[in-house]
Simulated scan of single mutants.
Amino acid sequence: MNAEIVYQVVKALSVEEQRLLFIKLNKEFDNVLPSKKKCKKKLIISDEEAIAYLIKNVFSKSKLIKK
Rank of each mutant, 00 (worst) to 15 (best):
L20I: 12
C39A: 15
L54Y: 12
I55K: 15
S35Q: 11
N2P: 03
K38A: 00
S60D: 07
S60C: 10
K40S: 11
K56R: 14
N2F: 10
V10Q: 06
E48L: 07
K63T: 13
K42H: 12
R19D: 15
Y7V: 04
I23P: 05
I51E: 06
I44P: 01
S46D: 01
K56C: 02
S62W: 08
K66T: 09
L43V: 08
S14F: 11
N26F: 03
K36D: 10
L25G: 03
K38E: 00
D47M: 04
K61M: 11
L13E: 03
M1N: 05
K37A: 07
E16W: 07
A52V: 05
I23R: 10
S60Q: 03
I5Q: 07
Y7S: 07
I45Y: 10
K11F: 05
V32G: 02
Q18D: 01
V9T: 14
V15T: 11
V58F: 08
V10L: 09
L20H: 12
K56Q: 07
V15Y: 13
E49H: 06
L64I: 06
S14N: 15
Q18E: 02
N57L: 06
I51Q: 02
F22P: 00
V32P: 00
A52G: 05
F29K: 04
D30A: 01
N26C: 13
D47E: 14
F29T: 03
V15Q: 11
I51P: 06
I5T: 05
Q8I: 08
I23D: 05
K37N: 04
V58T: 11
L13P: 02
V58Q: 08
E49G: 02
A52D: 08
R19Y: 14
V10R: 06
